[in-house]
Amino acid sequence: MTQRALATPPRLPPQPPRSLRFAGMGKSGSADRTFGALGAGAAGALGLVLIGVAVSVARIAWPSIQASGFSFVTTSVWDPSRGVFGALAFVWGTILTSTVALILAVPIGLGVALFLTDLGPPHLRKPVSSLVELLAAIPSVVYGLWAALVLAPILRTTVQPALAKIGGPLFRGPNVGFGILCASLVLAIMLLPTIASVSRDVLRAVPAELREGALALGATPWDAVRLVVLPHARHGVFGAILLGVGRAVGETMAVAAVVGSRADISPSLFAPGYTMSSVIANEFPVASSELHIAALAEVGLLLFVITVAFNVAARILVARSNKSAAGAQA
């Protein structure tokens, strides 16, 4: 540091009067704390809803958990009038419809996502993207109406007779239109936008340099997808599929409209069945005995555990995929 002294201090001109018009006005302190508390309260309420759902569903379900024990998920006799409740048929129906729906929706949804990010002509990407979002906006109950009054008759008159000629355990049994196949089809339609749009976001998060690097080496668009994009985004795409599973398992109204509502376990896709969500939708409003309500709530508890598990896994995968993409970009 320089050591220096000036002979005379610099003379300051007289200071113009500082207006004190606004001095001392404007508060912070307590208002800030109030805001923080309100915000934390709102956020906390949001966080508590999830726990609240779990706790209150479990509480209503308690009498059934006590009464049926483990046999609730290992038996399939569901007879409210006798007070016998086994939910295996609903679990089976849910697994069957979700599986068939995913088999149909995953390849198509992924194809749509790749069309939107890499393979489709650029000028078509935006309109197709909007249409897919429109597909997601149609209410479930409207899909249910359409499936019951349009899709099911088509299945009965045309599709199922044709499939029956293939035969096998999947394609036989009564041909009424309503049943596992119809529910699976409408589910697949409803899963498509979820799988397509989440995969699209994940694929988009793959850094442009990676794509361009591949293309600059003379890769075709498909080479770039195969060698660079999909390997990079695979966790996220898997997450998108898991989100789809979560939706499939929880989807209620459209399935309830066409699944046939019978608590049977049959490998046939033509047979009427039941799913966890649709049995709650159909029976909860009319259930009269406490045990019946509790049993339905226990089905709800199962549903909750399954969907939360799939969603947590999916969120972690999607977040990790997007983060690693962002990291590679930086």
């Binding site: 949001l46 809803v49 569903v57 209503i60 939706r247 209620t252 909860f284 709530a297 969907t307 969603n311």
Partner: peptide, 20 residues
């Protein structure tokens, strides 16, 4: 995180809770 998970919980369960 829990908001994201809540968004994926089947809405019929929300009905069960509000009922309860």
């Amino acid at each position: 995180f829990s908001a994201d998970v809540l968004a994926g919980v089947p809405s019929i369960l929300v009905g069960v809770v509000v009922y309860a």
